[in-house]
Design a protein around this nucleic acid. Structure first.
Lengths: 239, 239
DNA sequence: AGCCGTCTGTACGCTATGGCACAGTGTATT
DNA sequence: AATACACTGTGCCATAGCGTACAGACGGCT
């Protein structure tokens, strides 16, 4: 990596001071992140950390018996490897690309020693872990108390925050797995949101029309984790 | 605190080497932890860390609009103050006592500087944060895919792991709030488990009769997080 | 152009759980 | 002993979401 190229889109890289960045940038290798690349595997040592510049990855927990559910998402506001940031060597969950993009990969030991060396870097990355934790607790809340329609609105907002256009490209089937619900239920919920003029939904594609309306629709299940991110990292999560 | 008293019941204190313990033990003050003492308040700076020796605390996320839901529990396997361990100053969630007990309190800055000083201590506590994260993701999974009866079984097991007798003392109303369900639903689910001979339920009191049966009943929603704790901390969570 | 696989729309009955309401039963209080 | 309160048991209807099934629509491929 060219040290001079500071036009990173990743919020964590942007939040670093030049000294901190210098600890890791020379070891970063650009990589295309295509669906469905697996970035981390459950109960398996983490070899590389992935720093996302564009695209989107999901962290999913696997139910013994096959069904998955999403516990967090990572886009250009973050990176994989929370377990490494916490001094561990293996992740408990699977993380995989869900919307193609690109980013960098970095050997886990480099990150560990950089965190050891720079207290500021350590603080930043631990703050990010805290933001991730907030995201996960927000998911507990949403799954516990919110209706499918609300959870869907929340999810669309979270994805929208982390991507560039107004368009999200994926199938109902996929969404259903992420939310841990039935595919047909997603179709119906999308129509509900579409009926309210908040989105437009076509084959493999969802367009956000009214972001503010979606936030209303999410009934409080969106916002707290995002505010926590802003507080901890210092820059807003959404553009 | 007398430095010589090593008969701590808290698993994290037990997992520390004498040097690490010496960094914090002199600053710990014994305290009774009575229901419903609030140990941490959402969006409020953390003054003291609580190290639990007996009893049980719940970490709850609050839905804007009143309803709470439990995202984690802390007993003698852990302590409060995850935000501080991550270098932050305030917690995103409320933590309060749910089963009375006792423990120690420790000023947050002492913990911070002790973690700064001892890398081993830092590793231990960050590993604990990782275990907490596993617990929360396990809750996402349970809330997403498991029936009330299964979630109840899971919850009883988690409480049982962290208390001493076979008896858990609290009301259906309380359980309902923790699980984010209707009080009447808890009553029915308890009867179901009782009908299978796994527990005995009387006013304000639930007795575990068949732990193994409960694990079966939880259908995989119990176990993963507990195994992760064991792997990370080195001692089993359950007695 | 025509075909085929993937994705979406819709429908039907079923189950779990919610909201509510109220009666019954312990337990504490005086 | 009487009373009051907190807690538990139960019932009824409403509804969200599930499992399943199938038809229609779109789009890529030959």
């Amino acid at each position: 990596m060219d040290d001079e190229q500071l036009n990173f889109r990743n919020e964590l890289l942007r939040a670093m001071s030049p000294q901190e960045r210098d600890l890791i940038v020379p070891h970063m290798k650009p990589i295309t992140l295509d669906v469905p690349l697996i970035l981390e595997m459950e109960n398996t040592p983490v070899g590389d950390i992935y720093i996302v510049e564009s695209g989107l990855a999901s962290i999913v927990a696997r139910f013994p018996g096959g069904r998955d559910i999403e516990v967090g998402i990572v886009g250009r506001e973050g990176m994989t490897g929370a377990a490494v940031m916490l001094g561990g060597d293996q992740s408990a969950n699977r993380t995989f690309m869900q919307v193609s993009g690109h980013g960098f990969k970095l050997p886990a030991p480099i990150l560990s020693s950089a965190m050891e060396e720079s207290r500021a870097l350590r603080n930043l990355l631990l703050a990010y872990v805290q933001a991730l934790l907030a995201q996960t607790t927000s998911t507990v809340l949403a799954n516990g108390h919110a209706k499918l329609e609300e959870r869907l609105a929340r999810w669309l907002l979270m994805v929208h925050d982390r991507t560039d256009g107004m368009t999200i490209s994926l199938t109902h089937e996929f969404l259903a797995v992420m939310l841990g619900v039935r595919r047909a239920g997603v179709t119906v919920a999308l129509h509900l949101l579409e009926g309210k003029g908040l989105i437009r939904s076509t084959r493999r594609q969802i367009v956000i029309l009214n972001r503010r309306g979606l936030i209303e629709e999410a009934h409080g299940s969106y916002g707290a984790a995002e505010e926590e991110y802003r507080r901890l990292i210092g820059s807003p999560l959404a553009r």
